[in-house]
Design a protein around this nucleic acid. Structure first.
Lengths: 249, 249
DNA sequence: GTAATTACATGATCTGGCGCAATTAATCGC
DNA sequence: GCGATTAATTGCGCCAGATCATGTAATTAC
């Protein structure tokens, strides 16, 4: 008899979220690229943003929609995805509090290349692209920080290309779990829990594999005692072992 | 008897390049993110750059080297690559005149995550990261344009992730040839020639496939009359057919 | 509560593309 | 010009991982 858990350890912490109007200023102050601004500058910027709540599973926008706005995740997690004609979806990134997504450029006639879905209940702040451009022009240090972050994401995406081109599904899965742990991990009795609902399907879409293959490898990892996992949740128990697998053990 | 060509149509146009000192100002003026500056601003910026020539095949830097400088391709083409422990190399991007690469951030203790090799003889202008940061701070419109370009590259990399996750080698190859045609294509009698030395190995490293598989598919494409290709060169004759293949025909 | 639905597991089979090998063609070095 | 080197082609066996199929545990709907 396997020690498979019957109930998720922690989805209670992830409830549908709405922004209370009062906390917007507080949230904006903690967005990495606004952190260096004064309270009154943030107050000014605050006026250009509007808030919006989304239920878990709801789309923020679809690929092909006219790209008009830039969003900042205030609370919760979203999935950035790309669709294929074959129906196979690819999960490019998971974004959480303080991350931005949507349209950076001011070219009006563009459409979003990706779809963004609320993975948990979320609160998002958004601003139209021109408004954001104005902020970038008015506060050059903000632009530099946004550039920094975009550069880091570019490197991350290039690393993903590398992984998909050169490594096995097992290695990619190990790597993906480690990245998720770094970003969303929370120490618990079961291990370091990845603090969000995370299905085999999600992991398959993140690693460019099928659900079945991911399920098989997750079973192996679990048997080896490296992870503990149930329905829509994963905790890492031996990150060192995963690191070895990812590196080509 | 196949109509395989015995000699490349156009590598004569790609000779080892050195920058003459005189042309630097001219080159900088045509770099996209400096285009909006005045002649005298460019002159000031010019002083922070230094030039360097590289022979075809020479490395500009290796992954793991301390990341200290930002480069701009003044003439020629370079390959941006990532290595794997298994020896399998991945070709992330081909950069040509006006493109930048290297270190954007000012964090001193970093190393380059990629290797950049001169694909042809090239001339590169370079500046230390702090110097570039100072320029970005001094000329905010430059920072915005660099952000624009970085954002576009991020989308390109995400599209590559999508392709690798969801499409066949045949589709990825068709897509890659089309992108190269858009970037480097030059109308010739044989078709639209991709104006750089481009081997099956290069295409394999760009598509995450093996040389043999690429060779086989290139033969198919050639038999179908969609491309014409020889030793280190490729010309596209029917881009519409390739587009159909890429889209899932 | 019970039925319907959704997430996960695992076995059996099939295949796109890899790995290896042998041959041919173009280019380089002297 | 001629051998040495590098690029490309093509055949063949094989395997990682996809696909298909079936079963079961957890969750949702009522």
């Amino acid at each position: 008899m396997t020690t498979r858990r019957k109930s998720p350890v922690e989805t209670e912490a992830i409830q549908p979220q709405m922004c209370s109007v009062d906390v917007r200023q507080h949230i904006l102050r903690h967005v990495p690229f606004f952190a260096m601004l004064s309270e009154e500058d943030i107050g000014r910027i605050n006026q250009s943003f509007r808030e919006q709540g989304f239920e878990a599973g709801e789309p923020i926008y679809y690929a092909g929609d006219p790209a008009a706005r830039l969003y900042v995740v205030a609370a919760g997690k979203v999935k950035q995805m790309r669709h294929s004609l074959t129906g196979q979806d690819v999960l490019l990134d998971i974004l959480s509090e303080g991350d931005f997504f949507g349209s950076l450029s001011i070219l009006g006639d563009e459409t979003y290349p990706d779809t963004v879905l609320a993975q948990t209940g979320i609160c998002a702040l958004s601003i139209d692209s021109e408004g954001f451009r104005e902020i970038l022009q008015a506060y050059p240090p903000v632009a530099l920080e946004v550039l920094n972050i975009t550069g880091q994401r570019l490197r991350g995406a290039q690393e993903a290309v590398h992984q998909l081109s050169a490594y096995s599904v097992e290695q990619r899965l190990a790597y993906t779990l480690l990245k998720l742990m770094d970003k969303l991990g929370e120490a618990q009795e079961v291990g370091v829990l990845i603090q969000m609902p995370l299905s085999r399907d999600d992991l398959a879409a993140m690693t460019g594999a099928t659900t079945e293959t991911i399920s098989r490898i997750m079973s192996q990892f679990q048997k080896a005692g490296w992870i503990k996992s149930g329905r829509q949740w994963v905790a890492i128990r031996d990150s060192e072992a995963l690191r070895e697998v990812a590196a080509g053990g």
